[in-house]
């Protein structure tokens, strides 16, 4: 039984039977996943299971060997470069290693999507960038280069850049990897804050179990090349699926019992 319960909602992203093989390794073996509008879906799973590969399929950076990837009901696996570009206009992405343009200042990094994709005047762009940097608690960072910032600050710049064009879907690839607890919480707080404000749909690939569950509407476990169930966090924890049980037991035994952690996230 792959899917314990079908989620019923207007889908923004839908993966249907996605398969991907690298050399002799079958990474995705019929992935079905449905991301609902305005919700946060978290994809979890052990390292090397192919979580980022799923994300790359959603972004159209990889094409599946079989199956469909539908974004707003449109199959992007068959889309031309132009159609793909049109679909990506609604995307914001925070990459695992942030992927800031390291030879540009923070200001230019955040301004780039605005300069390239809108016809706004330089003054308007400057105002918007300043606003985004304020929102991310990054005052005075505009003239610095990415290498001069800490990891947490880089992630925030990445988030500012991802949100620059008010995207409808934002993808987060391991948003807190390599950050300490406080910095992670800061990122989560910003995420929560911006999602409430902008109302985007979020897809998060994360290792940070159990904390990430608090932010999620649905949790999907990728194991053995398939999604083992896409459930609400509570359902996920109580799931009968042996692989999910295994995952829950090894990673998050104490999630709802630690009050201190609860308080830290508030």
């Amino acid at each position: 039984m792959r899917q314990e319960k079908k989620i019923d909602c207007p889908a923004v992203i839908e993966l249907i039977g996605v398969e991907k093989v690298f050399g002799r390794q079958r990474v995705l073996d019929g992935v079905d996943l449905r991301v609902c509008e305005g919700t946060t879906t978290v994809i979890v799973g052990a390292s090397g299971e192919g979580k980022s590969v799923i994300l790359k399929h959603m972004l159209g950076l990889m094409r599946p060997d079989a199956g469909r990837v539908e974004i707003f009901g449109r199959d992007i696996t068959q889309a031309s470069a132009r159609e793909l570009k049109a679909v990506r206009r609604d995307f914001g992405v925070l990459f695992q290693n942030v992927a800031l343009f390291d030879s540009m200042t923070i200001f230019d990094n955040v301004a780039l999507p605005l300069r390239e994709r809108t016809k706004e005047r330089p003054q308007q762009i400057a105002v918007r960038v300043e606003e985004l940097l304020q929102m991310m608690d990054l005052p005075g960072a505009a003239t610095k280069y990415p290498a001069q910032l800490s990891g947490g600050m880089q992630k925030r710049v990445g988030l500012a850049r991802a949100l620059a064009l008010d995207p409808k879907i934002v993808f987060f690839d391991e948003p807190t990897t390599g950050l300490d607890v406080l910095k992670s919480n800061e990122i989560y707080r910003l995420f929560h804050h911006t999602q409430a404000k902008l109302g985007y749909t979020a897809v998060i690939v994360s290792h940070d179990v159990p904390k990430i569950f608090k932010l999620s509407d649905h949790v999907a476990l990728l194991a053995e090349g398939v999604i083992q169930g896409q459930l609400t966090p509570e359902e996920f924890q109580r799931s009968e699926n042996p692989l999910i049980r295994d995952f829950v037991e090894t990673t998050m035994g104490l999630i709802y019992s630690s009050e201190r952690e609860e308080a830290a996230l508030q």
Binding site: V93, Q96, L100
Partner: peptide
């Protein structure tokens, strides 16, 4: 320059921002 941008996913980032990396 382009190799480093490819390696650090900066080209992917451009693509995901719907900015044509060839053109840019």
């Amino acid at each position: 320059e382009i190799g480093i941008m490819r390696n650090s996913e900066q080209i992917d980032a451009l693509e995901c921002m719907a900015v044509d990396p060839w053109r840019y």
